[in-house]
């Protein structure tokens, strides 16, 4: 077992199974496993130095610590410290320092794309934490289609089929 900051979820297992069965119209859905996926959560405060339209506020980004993929985070996640089985934690492949650089570049790029010629603000680091997002691995079966395994984001309820 290992302690980690786990992103809290409002979903419990039976509710998520019902949700997936309803969404995919599967004849049967059952949970095979639960895993914890590592991200770097990083939050900046915007400090506008110029530009026609001044933007204030905060912007947050997550970096997938396995493949390095970045995303803009909409809200600050609620985290809880928990002990989880080590074998259910996905191994990190990206160092914290590298993830921090990626996050900064990504946020700058996102802002410049959004603000265009109006100028990109300076970013002041406010908060940074490694956290784990829980995913369920589920098996689904249908009457007229091949069975499939899917991963389900336990926070948002979004899912993606596994490739095999």
């Amino acid at each position: 077992m290992k302690e980690g900051s786990i992103i809290a979820t409002d979903w419990d297992e039976p509710a998520m199974v019902d949700w997936i069965a309803q969404k995919t119209r599967a004849r049967s859905v059952y949970v095979q496993n639960q895993v914890y996926y590592p991200y770097l959560y990083i939050q900046y405060r915007l400090q506008q130095t110029g530009g026609l339209f001044r933007k204030k506020g905060r912007i947050a980004c997550t970096v997938d610590l396995v493949s390095g993929k970045e995303a803009i985070a909409d809200t600050m996640p609620v985290m809880e410290s928990r002990w989880v089985p080590v074998e259910n934690m996905i191994q990190e492949g990206v160092q914290r320092e590298e993830a921090r650089k990626r996050a900064e570049a990504y946020v700058y790029a996102s802002l410049s794309v959004g603000l265009k010629w109006l100028g990109t603000p300076t970013l002041i680091l406010e908060e940074e934490e490694i956290c784990y997002r829980p995913f369920w691995v589920m098996s689904c079966e249908w009457e007229r289609a091949d069975p499939a395994k899917i991963v389900v984001d336990a926070v948002s309820g979004r899912y993606h089929p596994l490739f095999t």
């Binding site: 895993v35 996926y37 396995v66 995913f135 991963v151 993606h160 089929p161 596994l162 490739f163």
Partner: peptide
């Protein structure tokens, strides 16, 4: 979620 699915 394709990268996460792939890595899992």
């Amino acid at each position: 979620l394709a990268p996460e699915a792939r890595n899992i």
